[in-house]
Each structure stands twice: as structure tokens, then as C-alpha cells.
């Protein structure tokens, strides 16, 4: 019994240590500025305040960044999931020449570093006159999101028994009819978890946003918030921590409600590869 309690305390000690930076972010964001410079630091805020959140929304372009990030991540997710659902169906269930090489190419690009593609992509988008737009970022994000989504969906698709489709075909359904009526409902959990992962990936992307967008009107949260750190003369840590919390809120929502989907996605793509 004592050993069990000791083990539990030990385990929770580590868990809390790992989670401490996140706790500290939350605490700092609700402390008034003057309390940050108290020594020794206060563990819990003496005075709770939401002034930084209000300032964030009223005095900084945070909401524009937030809106941009929402548009950007949603658009990327929709485009990528639509294309890759059809693509994964084709890769798993159809036979034609070049299918294997294509699957190999998908895996290869999934591992490709962004810095290799970023120079030609930058040149390409600048010459098309698309730099400084959200659209250019959607194009750029496709480079990592599409191989990723395809790879995930491919393994989800492979998990659906082939007999289901055959049965529908025997019953007289067309191939596309069977796809819509039989495959899609079976694939739905896979599609949802792929969409969530793609959304998170786009939400958190930094490098392409740094290189391709240089104006506040199209900047997403990652580069926008980082700019607030770099451009301020006097670093306001409470404000930055409030921004960090707000930036993580959509992820927390995604994470809390759909944890089972997330772990399933991990098993299918992230690990089995």
C-alpha cells in the first residue's frame, strides 16, 4: 500500500513537472505586470486580472492574426482532406501502373525538410504575385499537409475490409456509389482525425509564414505573436503569456473533445509510418 502511494506520488511528480511550464504560462497571464517583478515570485497570483487579455484584444492586432490563422488552417484542412481522401481511395483500392512509386513518393515527401522547398516556393509565389496573401500560405502548407494526410488516410483506408465494397458492387452499386455509401461512412473517424491533425499542423506552422508573409493583414498567429516579442522595446511577459494561452485555446478544444480520435490517428500514421 505504501509502495503504491509512493509510486503514485512519484508518477504525479513527474507529470506535474512536465506540465509546469504550461501552468506557469496560465498563471503569468492573469498576474498584474508589477507582480511579475516580485522576488520571490508569487506562486499563485495575489491579484487576479484579465487586463492583459483585454489589452491583447483591444490594443494589438491579435484578433486579425487569430482570424487569419482560422481561415488559413481551415482552408488548408479542407483542400488537403478532400484531395487526399480521393487519392487514398485510389492508392489503396485500384490497380494501375505507377501506383507503388506514387506511394513511395508520398512517403518521401512526408519526410522532406521544408527548407529545401522554401527557396523555390518563395521564388514561385513571388513571381506569381501571391506573396503576402493567405492564399500563398495555403499553397505552401499543402506541401507538408498533403503527404501527411495521404499517408494517414492510406492506412485508415487499408483497415476497411474489402468485402464490404465487393458486397455493394455485387448488389449493383457503381464504384463511386459504393465509395460514397460504404467506404466514406467507414472512413469517417479516419477523416476526422486526419482533419484534426492537419489543422493542428497548419495552426502551428512557422517557417513558411515567416518567409512568405510580411504584412500584418495576412500574418497568422505564429509569426504575429513572435513579432510582438521582437518588436516591443519593453517585453511584456504577461501580455505574451496571454497571447500564448489564447493561441492554444483552439488546440485545447480540439484535444479535449476528440482525444480518442487523436490517439487513433497516432496509431495509424505517426507510428506505423
Amino acid at each position: 500500500m505504501i509502495r503504491r502511494v509512493a509510486f503514485n506520488l512519484f508518477a504525479w511528480g513527474i507529470v506535474l513537472a512536465v506540465a509546469f511550464p504550461l501552468f506557469w504560462m496560465l498563471v503569468t497571464s492573469v498576474k498584474p505586470q508589477f507582480e511579475l517583478f516580485r522576488r520571490p515570485p508569487t506562486f499563485l497570483p495575489e491579484t487576479w486580472t484579465l487586463e492583459h487579455y483585454i489589452r491583447l484584444i483591444q490594443d494589438t492586432p491579435f484578433l486579425t492574426y487569430f482570424k487569419n490563422s482560422i481561415i488559413l488552417s481551415t482552408a488548408t484542412t479542407l483542400v488537403v482532406v478532400a484531395i487526399s481522401t480521393l487519392g487514398a481511395y485510389s492508392l489503396v483500392r485500384f490497380k494501375y501502373r505507377g501506383r507503388e512509386s506514387l506511394a513511395f513518393l508520398v512517403l518521401f515527401t512526408y519526410l522532406l525538410p521544408s527548407v529545401v522547398l522554401i527557396i523555390p516556393l518563395y521564388l514561385m509565389l513571388v513571381s506569381m504575385g501571391l506573396s503576402n496573401t493567405i492564399f500563398s500560405l495555403v499553397i505552401a502548407y499543402t506541401t507538408f499537409a498533403l503527404p501527411y494526410a495521404l499517408w494517414l488516410l492510406r492506412s485508415f483506408m487499408a483497415g476497411i475490409p474489402e468485402d464490404l465494397e465487393s458486397a455493394a458492387l455485387v448488389d449493383g452499386a457503381s464504384r463511386m456509389g459504393a465509395f460514397v455509401d460504404v467506404i466514406l461512412p467507414q472512413l469517417l473517424p479516419g477523416i476526422i482525425s486526419t482533419a484534426l491533425f492537419t489543422f493542428i499542423l497548419s495552426w502551428n506552422e512557422y517557417l513558411y509564414a515567416l518567409v512568405l508573409v510580411n504584412s500584418d493583414s495576412a500574418r497568422p498567429l505564429t509569426t504575429g505573436v513572435m513579432n510582438m516579442l521582437v518588436s516591443s522595446f519593453n517585453i511584456e511577459w504577461s501580455l505574451l503569456m496571454a497571447a500564448s494561452v489564447m493561441m492554444s485555446v483552439p488546440l485545447i478544444i480540439v484535444f479535449a473533445f476528440l482525444q480518442s480520435y487523436l490517439t487513433r490517428g497516432f496509431g495509424a500514421g505517426g507510428v506505423k509510418g
Binding site: 504550461l22 504560462m25 505574451l240 500564448s244 493561441m247 488546440l251
Partner: peptide, 10 residues
């Protein structure tokens, strides 16, 4: 799952 930007700021 959090953004690297958030991790770095914290």
C-alpha cells in the same frame, strides 16, 4: 500539441 512558438515564449 502546442505550437513551437508558444513553447519557446514560455
Amino acid at each position: 500539441f502546442i505550437s513551437t512558438v508558444v513553447a519557446v515564449l514560455v
